[in-house]
């Protein structure tokens, strides 16, 4: 009995004919990349993103220190949002990204202060170790699904901040201060920015491979996947680890930026903001999270001038975005972008 072997020797002519048909079927949906114009149409958005992220830190003299700070924080939040999005790919809706963020921040701080590890390495080590710790806690929790997983993740960061508060480990409520900064302005700016771009494009690439197919399959239908002989636990473990590593990286960078880490790293803000970014930007795909972060973070910074009214205005703006662009900013923009192209042709 060998069904696949008989298939491997399917006759060549038949296969050729089939491939022709396949090309035809696909070409209806995909524009051919023949002219320079069409190629630029496809790569323009990616190029814009890369250029923006590379050029922005160079504009310090024009824009001033304040906007560079906003840019830095936006990059970190974008990484956190991507890490949230990655978890949601395997059907895990987390309300506790603050846990991953805080773990990264604390570990990097401790490595730096107690073990005198120089900064870039403490960030990388914190991403690795932190991811391991987070995975060991989140992976067992991932057996529970839907709203229950959300509830558990919501509780975990609160639990840790209360433990730190009560036992006064890691500096208790006063936190750990005196953490070394990265130092060099360009390293500080480009390090997270490069990781953001790298993670973004690598993850998009990953999702289009066969392994990405399995990741998408988990959200769609675990049972079919298991009956296809796929070890879903291995895949979930990998995805949780990867997502945690990104989240920890984001937290670690933040602690060196402020040169301080306290229980505020576990605060609800860091759980909610990535979620807001993803929802606002468009829930499918990493592009949505990225764009969402670049809308939400500068918005929240700009509103600081309003004092206590800030949260009110912020909420109203978010609600308006969700009501007016329910598909998400990214889906909206990409739809308009494709329309421009069609319009030109006519």
């Amino acid at each position: 009995m060998n069904t696949l072997n008989t298939l491997n020797t399917v006759n060549i002519a038949k296969r050729k004919e089939r491939i022709d048909r396949a090309i035809k079927a696909r070409c209806n949906d995909i524009y051919t990349l023949l002219s320079l114009k069409e190629i630029s149409y496809v790569i323009a958005p990616k190029l814009c993103l890369i250029l923006f992220i590379f050029i922005f830190p160079l504009l310090k003299a024009i824009l001033g220190y304040y906007w560079e700070r906003v840019f830095y924080i936006t990059c970190l939040i974008a990484i956190l949002a991507i890490s949230w999005e990655l978890l949601s790919y395997v059907g895990l809706v987390s309300l506790g990204q603050a846990f991953v963020f805080g773990t990264g921040a604390y570990i990097s701080g401790i490595f730096n202060i107690n073990f005198h590890i120089p900064v870039p390495f403490s960030i990388l080590l914190a991403s690795g170790f932190g991811a391991l710790i987070c995975t060991l806690i989140l992976f067992p929790a991932s057996k529970i699904k839907g709203i229950y997983f959300a509830m558990i993740t919501l509780c975990i960061p609160m639990f840790f901040s209360k433990v730190i508060e009560a036992t006064e480990i890691f500096g208790g409520t006063s936190g750990i201060s005196g953490i070394s900064p990265i130092g060099n302005y360009y390293v500080e700016m480009y390090f997270p920015a490069l990781v953001l771009i790298g993670a973004f494009f690598c993850l998009r690439r990953l999702m289009s491979t066969d392994f990405g197919l399995l990741i998408i399959g988990i959200k769609d239908n675990e049972f079919s996947l298991m009956s296809s002989g796929i070890n879903i636990y291995k895949i979930k473990f990998f995805v949780i680890f990867l997502s945690s590593a990104l989240g920890c990286f984001s937290g670690a960078c933040m602690c060196h930026y402020y040169q301080f880490v306290g229980i505020s790293a576990f605060s609800l803000d860091y759980s909610i903001i990535p979620l807001a970014c993803s929802i606002l930007g468009g829930i499918d795909g990493f592009s949505g999270s990225l764009i969402g972060a670049f809308v939400v973070c500068p918005l929240s910074e700009m509103l600081r001038g309003f004092g206590t009214l800030r949260i009110v205005i912020y909420s109203v703006l978010l609600i308006m975005f969700i009501l007016l662009v329910p598909e998400g900013i990214f889906s909206y923009i990409s739809r308009k972008y494709h329309q421009i192209e069609r319009w030109k042709e006519i």
């Binding site: 696949l4 399995l214 070890n231």
Partner: peptide
């Protein structure tokens, strides 16, 4: 394709 990614198919083929 998902089935073809399984360990079994990898092992046999």
């Amino acid at each position: 394709v998902i089935s073809l990614c399984s360990d079994r198919v990898k092992r046999l083929k």
